[in-house]
Protein backbone atom coordinates (compact mmCIF):
# COMPACT_ATOMS: atom_id res chain seq x y z
CA UNK A 1 0.00 0.00 0.00
CA UNK A 2 1.30 3.39 -0.83
CA UNK A 3 1.94 5.16 2.42
CA UNK A 4 -0.26 8.17 2.00
CA UNK A 5 0.89 10.07 5.02
CA UNK A 6 0.81 13.66 4.10
CA UNK A 7 2.36 16.31 6.21
CA UNK A 8 -0.22 18.94 6.81
CA UNK A 9 1.34 22.18 7.84
CA UNK A 10 1.80 21.29 11.48
CA UNK A 11 -0.10 24.27 12.81
CA UNK A 12 2.18 25.10 15.65
CA UNK A 13 0.15 26.41 18.48
CA UNK A 14 0.79 27.19 22.05
CA UNK A 15 -1.72 25.00 23.78
CA UNK A 16 -2.86 25.86 27.26
CA UNK A 17 -0.75 24.31 29.98
CA UNK A 18 -2.10 21.09 31.30
CA UNK A 19 -3.05 22.32 34.70
CA UNK A 20 -6.42 21.49 36.17
CA UNK A 21 -8.54 24.44 37.13
CA UNK A 22 -8.68 24.64 40.88
CA UNK A 23 -11.34 26.05 43.11
CA UNK A 24 -10.60 29.27 44.95
CA UNK A 25 -10.68 27.48 48.28
CA UNK A 26 -8.12 24.86 47.36
CA UNK A 27 -5.90 27.56 45.93
CA UNK A 28 -6.04 29.43 49.25
CA UNK A 29 -5.37 26.27 51.23
CA UNK A 30 -2.44 25.21 49.10
CA UNK A 31 -0.99 28.67 49.23
CA UNK A 32 -0.88 29.28 45.50
CA UNK A 33 -3.32 32.19 45.72
CA UNK A 34 -0.98 33.92 48.16
CA UNK A 35 1.87 33.53 45.73
CA UNK A 36 -0.27 35.16 43.02
CA UNK A 37 -1.32 38.04 45.23
CA UNK A 38 2.16 38.64 46.60
CA UNK A 39 3.66 38.59 43.11
CA UNK A 40 1.19 41.17 41.84
CA UNK A 41 1.77 43.32 44.91
CA UNK A 42 5.55 43.16 44.55
CA UNK A 43 5.39 43.95 40.86
CA UNK A 44 3.16 46.98 41.40
CA UNK A 45 5.42 48.12 44.21
CA UNK A 46 8.52 47.85 42.00
CA UNK A 47 6.67 49.59 39.17
CA UNK A 48 5.90 52.42 41.60
CA UNK A 49 9.21 52.66 43.40
CA UNK A 50 11.91 52.14 40.75
CA UNK A 51 11.08 55.27 38.70
CA UNK A 52 10.46 57.26 41.90
CA UNK A 53 13.93 56.73 43.30
CA UNK A 54 15.45 57.47 39.94
CA UNK A 55 16.88 54.14 38.80
CA UNK A 56 15.09 54.68 35.49
CA UNK A 57 13.84 57.88 33.95
CA UNK A 58 10.36 58.63 35.19
CA UNK A 59 9.39 60.35 31.94
CA UNK A 60 10.08 57.18 29.96
CA UNK A 61 8.95 54.75 32.64
CA UNK A 62 5.98 56.26 34.48
CA UNK A 63 5.02 54.80 37.83
CA UNK A 64 1.90 52.80 38.57
CA UNK A 65 0.12 55.83 40.00
CA UNK A 66 1.11 57.90 36.94
CA UNK A 67 -0.43 55.22 34.77
CA UNK A 68 -3.66 55.23 36.78
CA UNK A 69 -3.83 59.01 36.47
CA UNK A 70 -3.10 58.66 32.74
CA UNK A 71 -5.94 56.16 32.51
CA UNK A 72 -8.32 58.67 34.10
CA UNK A 73 -7.14 61.32 31.67
CA UNK A 74 -7.56 58.92 28.76
CA UNK A 75 -11.09 57.88 29.66
CA UNK A 76 -12.22 61.44 30.27
CA UNK A 77 -10.81 62.61 26.91
CA UNK A 78 -13.48 63.30 24.30
CA UNK A 79 -11.81 61.10 21.67
CA UNK A 80 -11.69 58.01 23.88
CA UNK A 81 -15.02 56.31 23.18
CA UNK A 82 -14.75 56.95 19.47
CA UNK A 83 -11.28 55.43 19.23
CA UNK A 84 -12.25 52.44 21.37
CA UNK A 85 -15.36 51.88 19.28
CA UNK A 86 -13.44 52.08 16.02
CA UNK A 87 -10.99 49.41 17.13
CA UNK A 88 -13.63 47.05 18.49
CA UNK A 89 -15.81 47.50 15.41
CA UNK A 90 -12.93 46.66 13.07
CA UNK A 91 -11.96 43.61 15.14
CA UNK A 92 -15.52 42.28 15.20
CA UNK A 93 -16.13 42.70 11.46
CA UNK A 94 -12.72 41.31 10.50
CA UNK A 95 -13.15 38.34 12.81
CA UNK A 96 -16.58 37.42 11.39
CA UNK A 97 -15.37 37.72 7.80
CA UNK A 98 -12.11 35.89 8.52
CA UNK A 99 -13.79 33.00 10.35
CA UNK A 100 -16.45 32.58 7.64
CA UNK A 101 -13.89 32.71 4.86
CA UNK A 102 -11.52 30.35 6.68
CA UNK A 103 -14.26 27.84 7.41
CA UNK A 104 -15.60 27.81 3.85
CA UNK A 105 -12.10 27.41 2.49
CA UNK A 106 -11.31 24.68 5.01
CA UNK A 107 -14.42 22.71 4.04
CA UNK A 108 -13.89 23.21 0.31
CA UNK A 109 -10.27 22.14 0.43
CA UNK A 110 -10.47 19.69 3.32
CA UNK A 111 -13.39 17.56 2.29
CA UNK A 112 -11.36 15.46 -0.12
CA UNK A 113 -8.02 13.96 0.92
CA UNK A 114 -6.78 14.41 -2.63
CA UNK A 115 -7.27 18.17 -2.73
CA UNK A 116 -6.00 18.41 0.82
CA UNK A 117 -2.71 16.78 -0.12
CA UNK A 118 -2.41 18.82 -3.30
CA UNK A 119 -2.97 22.11 -1.51
CA UNK A 120 -0.67 21.43 1.46
CA UNK A 121 2.52 23.02 0.05
CA UNK A 122 0.58 26.21 -0.66
CA UNK A 123 -0.83 26.20 2.84
CA UNK A 124 2.71 25.95 4.19
CA UNK A 125 3.77 28.88 2.02
CA UNK A 126 0.83 31.00 3.21
CA UNK A 127 1.70 30.08 6.78
CA UNK A 128 5.38 30.92 6.38
CA UNK A 129 4.75 34.33 4.83
CA UNK A 130 4.54 36.97 7.54
CA UNK A 131 1.29 38.46 6.36
CA UNK A 132 1.87 41.84 8.00
CA UNK A 133 4.17 42.67 5.06
CA UNK A 134 0.97 43.47 3.19
CA UNK A 135 -0.05 46.16 5.69
CA UNK A 136 1.53 49.20 4.01
CA UNK A 137 0.23 48.05 0.61
CA UNK A 138 -3.32 47.63 1.89
CA UNK A 139 -3.22 51.01 3.55
CA UNK A 140 -1.93 52.56 0.34
CA UNK A 141 -4.65 50.86 -1.67
CA UNK A 142 -7.70 51.11 0.59
CA UNK A 143 -6.78 54.36 2.30
CA UNK A 144 -6.59 55.19 5.96
CA UNK A 145 -10.17 54.21 6.79
CA UNK A 146 -11.46 51.12 8.52
CA UNK A 147 -11.39 49.12 5.25
CA UNK A 148 -7.63 48.73 5.30
CA UNK A 149 -7.67 47.68 8.95
CA UNK A 150 -10.37 45.10 8.32
CA UNK A 151 -8.64 43.80 5.20
CA UNK A 152 -5.34 43.27 7.00
CA UNK A 153 -7.02 41.64 9.99
CA UNK A 154 -8.99 39.28 7.73
CA UNK A 155 -5.85 38.24 5.87
CA UNK A 156 -4.08 37.56 9.15
CA UNK A 157 -6.91 35.84 10.99
CA UNK A 158 -8.52 33.54 8.42
CA UNK A 159 -5.51 31.26 8.32
CA UNK A 160 -5.84 29.27 11.57
CA UNK A 161 -9.54 28.69 10.93
CA UNK A 162 -8.79 27.41 7.45
CA UNK A 163 -6.05 25.03 8.59
CA UNK A 164 -7.89 23.83 11.69
CA UNK A 165 -11.00 23.10 9.65
CA UNK A 166 -8.93 21.16 7.14
CA UNK A 167 -7.10 19.17 9.81
CA UNK A 168 -10.25 18.69 11.88
CA UNK A 169 -12.18 17.17 8.99
CA UNK A 170 -9.41 14.59 8.61
CA UNK A 171 -9.46 13.61 12.29
CA UNK A 172 -11.86 10.61 12.27
CA UNK A 173 -9.93 7.41 11.74
CA UNK A 174 -10.28 4.93 8.93
CA UNK A 175 -12.54 2.59 10.92
CA UNK A 176 -15.05 5.34 11.55
CA UNK A 177 -15.17 6.15 7.86
CA UNK A 178 -15.60 2.48 7.03
CA UNK A 179 -18.41 2.11 9.53
CA UNK A 180 -20.23 5.04 7.98
CA UNK A 181 -19.73 3.62 4.51
CA UNK A 182 -20.86 0.16 5.51
CA UNK A 183 -24.06 1.72 6.83
CA UNK A 184 -24.54 3.31 3.42
CA UNK A 185 -24.06 6.82 4.64
CA UNK A 186 -24.05 9.42 1.93
CA UNK A 187 -21.14 11.82 1.50
CA UNK A 188 -23.26 14.51 3.15
CA UNK A 189 -24.06 12.27 6.11
CA UNK A 190 -20.41 11.38 6.58
CA UNK A 191 -19.68 15.07 6.60
CA UNK A 192 -22.40 16.23 9.01
CA UNK A 193 -22.50 13.21 11.33
CA UNK A 194 -18.86 12.21 11.50
CA UNK A 195 -16.40 14.75 10.19
CA UNK A 196 -17.99 17.97 11.38
CA UNK A 197 -18.67 16.89 15.00
CA UNK A 198 -15.09 15.72 15.38
CA UNK A 199 -13.73 18.83 13.68
CA UNK A 200 -15.65 21.45 15.65
CA UNK A 201 -13.51 21.35 18.83
CA UNK A 202 -10.46 21.88 16.66
CA UNK A 203 -12.15 24.61 14.63
CA UNK A 204 -13.12 26.40 17.83
CA UNK A 205 -9.44 26.61 18.77
CA UNK A 206 -8.76 28.25 15.43
CA UNK A 207 -11.72 30.58 15.87
CA UNK A 208 -10.38 31.69 19.23
CA UNK A 209 -6.91 32.15 17.84
CA UNK A 210 -8.43 34.16 14.98
CA UNK A 211 -9.96 36.59 17.44
CA UNK A 212 -6.55 37.47 18.84
CA UNK A 213 -5.00 37.66 15.40
CA UNK A 214 -7.78 39.96 14.20
CA UNK A 215 -7.04 42.23 17.16
CA UNK A 216 -3.34 42.18 16.29
CA UNK A 217 -4.06 42.94 12.63
CA UNK A 218 -6.28 45.89 13.47
CA UNK A 219 -3.70 47.29 15.89
CA UNK A 220 -0.88 46.98 13.33
CA UNK A 221 -2.93 48.79 10.69
CA UNK A 222 -3.88 51.50 13.16
CA UNK A 223 -0.31 52.04 14.32
CA UNK A 224 0.89 52.25 10.72
CA UNK A 225 -1.84 54.37 9.17
CA UNK A 226 -2.41 56.58 12.19
CA UNK A 227 -5.17 58.72 10.81
CA UNK A 228 -8.48 56.94 11.17
CA UNK A 229 -8.15 56.55 14.91
CA UNK A 230 -8.33 53.56 17.18
CA UNK A 231 -6.29 52.33 20.12
CA UNK A 232 -3.21 51.62 17.99
CA UNK A 233 -3.17 55.19 16.74
CA UNK A 234 -3.55 56.50 20.30
CA UNK A 235 -0.61 54.42 21.53
CA UNK A 236 1.59 55.57 18.68
CA UNK A 237 0.68 59.25 19.06
CA UNK A 238 1.14 59.33 22.82
CA UNK A 239 4.45 57.49 22.53
CA UNK A 240 5.75 59.89 19.90
CA UNK A 241 4.79 62.81 22.16
CA UNK A 242 6.65 60.99 24.95
CA UNK A 243 3.42 61.13 26.92
CA UNK A 244 4.24 57.79 28.44
CA UNK A 245 1.64 57.60 31.19
CA UNK A 246 -1.08 57.81 28.55
CA UNK A 247 0.75 55.27 26.38
CA UNK A 248 0.91 52.91 29.33
CA UNK A 249 -2.79 53.46 29.90
CA UNK A 250 -3.59 52.54 26.29
CA UNK A 251 -1.43 49.40 26.53
CA UNK A 252 -3.24 48.52 29.75
CA UNK A 253 -6.60 48.91 28.02
CA UNK A 254 -5.45 46.73 25.12
CA UNK A 255 -4.34 44.03 27.55
CA UNK A 256 -7.66 44.17 29.41
CA UNK A 257 -9.65 43.94 26.18
CA UNK A 258 -7.53 41.04 24.93
CA UNK A 259 -7.95 39.11 28.17
CA UNK A 260 -11.68 39.80 28.16
CA UNK A 261 -12.01 38.61 24.57
CA UNK A 262 -10.17 35.39 25.30
CA UNK A 263 -12.20 34.68 28.42
CA UNK A 264 -15.39 35.31 26.49
CA UNK A 265 -14.22 33.00 23.72
CA UNK A 266 -13.39 30.34 26.33
CA UNK A 267 -16.90 30.46 27.72
CA UNK A 268 -18.46 30.25 24.26
CA UNK A 269 -16.14 27.40 23.36
CA UNK A 270 -17.16 25.39 26.40
CA UNK A 271 -20.84 25.88 25.56
CA UNK A 272 -20.45 24.99 21.89
CA UNK A 273 -18.22 21.94 22.06
CA UNK A 274 -19.73 20.28 25.09
CA UNK A 275 -19.07 16.87 23.54
CA UNK A 276 -15.31 17.21 23.18
CA UNK A 277 -13.01 15.14 25.35
CA UNK A 278 -11.71 18.19 27.10
CA UNK A 279 -15.11 19.51 28.08
CA UNK A 280 -16.20 16.11 29.28
CA UNK A 281 -13.08 15.78 31.38
CA UNK A 282 -13.81 19.14 32.94
CA UNK A 283 -17.30 18.12 34.00
CA UNK A 284 -16.17 14.93 35.64
Amino acid sequence: MTATTTTMPPTPRASAPLVARESLWSRIRRGSLWISITTVAIMILLWEVIPQIGIVNRILFPTFSDTILGFGQLVSGGYWWEDLGKTLYAVAIAWVIGVTFGFVMGVALGISPFIRTAITPYAIAVQALPKVVLAPLLIGWLGFGSESKIALAVIICFFPVWIDTMVGLALPNANEFKLMQSLKASRWQVFTKLQLPSAVPMIMVGVKHALLLAFTGVLVAEILSASDGGLGKLAKEFASQLNMSLTYAVVLVVVIIAVALVSLADVVERRVVFWSEESRARKR
Binding site: A14, A16, P17, V19, E22, R27, R30, S32, L33, I35, S36, T39, L60, L212, F215, T216, L219, V220, I223, L231, G232, A235, K236, F238, A239, S240, L242, M244, T247, Y248, V250, V251, V254, V255, A258, V259, L261, V262
Partner: peptide, 26 residues
Protein backbone atom coordinates in the same frame (compact mmCIF):
# COMPACT_ATOMS: atom_id res chain seq x y z
CA UNK B 1 4.08 28.01 41.27
CA UNK B 2 2.28 26.80 38.18
CA UNK B 3 -1.19 27.19 39.64
CA UNK B 4 -0.20 30.52 41.14
CA UNK B 5 0.90 31.96 37.83
CA UNK B 6 -1.62 30.28 35.54
CA UNK B 7 -4.00 33.27 35.41
CA UNK B 8 -1.15 35.58 34.39
CA UNK B 9 -0.05 33.13 31.74
CA UNK B 10 -3.46 33.07 30.08
CA UNK B 11 -3.32 36.86 30.12
CA UNK B 12 0.10 36.76 28.45
CA UNK B 13 -1.33 34.62 25.69
CA UNK B 14 -3.94 37.23 24.90
CA UNK B 15 -1.70 40.29 24.69
CA UNK B 16 -1.12 41.51 21.14
CA UNK B 17 2.59 42.30 21.49
CA UNK B 18 2.56 44.79 18.60
CA UNK B 19 0.99 47.36 20.91
CA UNK B 20 4.34 47.46 22.72
CA UNK B 21 6.18 48.55 19.55
CA UNK B 22 5.61 52.32 19.99
CA UNK B 23 6.65 51.97 23.64
CA UNK B 24 9.85 50.12 22.80
CA UNK B 25 10.77 52.70 20.17
CA UNK B 26 10.25 55.46 22.71
Amino acid sequence: LRTAYLPFLSALEAIPTVILAPLIIA
